[in-house]
Computed example of a mutant assay.
Amino acid sequence: MVIVEVVLETYDAVDFTAWPIAEPSRDRLLSLSGQMSPAEVGTAMAVIFSYNGIPVTHAADLTEAHLEQHLAEAECLIAPGGLRFHDTTTDVSVSPGCCFGLENWRDW
Rank of each mutant, 00 (worst) to 15 (best):
A74K: 04
V14F: 09
D12Q: 05
D27W: 01
A18G: 14
H86C: 02
W105R: 14
L77R: 01
L62S: 01
C76N: 07
G97S: 09
L102K: 01
Y51G: 00
N104A: 15
N52A: 11
A79I: 06
Y51R: 07
L67W: 07
D27K: 05
G101Q: 03
D15E: 15
P80S: 13
P96C: 03
D87K: 01
V2P: 10
S25K: 09
D87H: 04
I21E: 02
N52C: 15
T10G: 01
P55A: 07
D87N: 12
S33C: 10
G53W: 14
S33P: 06
A18K: 15
E9F: 06
V14L: 13
E68T: 10
H86P: 00
C76Q: 15
R28Q: 02
T10V: 14
E23R: 15
A39F: 05
T63A: 05
E75M: 13
A65K: 10
A59F: 10
V47T: 00
W105L: 08
S33V: 09
E5S: 07
C98F: 14
F49E: 00
G42S: 13
N104P: 00
L77Q: 00
A79G: 09
I54T: 03
A60S: 10
E23M: 13
R84L: 04
L62K: 00
P96M: 06
I78A: 14
S33E: 14
E64P: 01
Q35A: 12
I78N: 14
A18M: 15
I21A: 03
E23G: 11
E73D: 10
T57F: 04
V2S: 15
C76F: 09
H86W: 08
E40W: 02
L8G: 00
A44C: 05
V47C: 00
D61N: 08
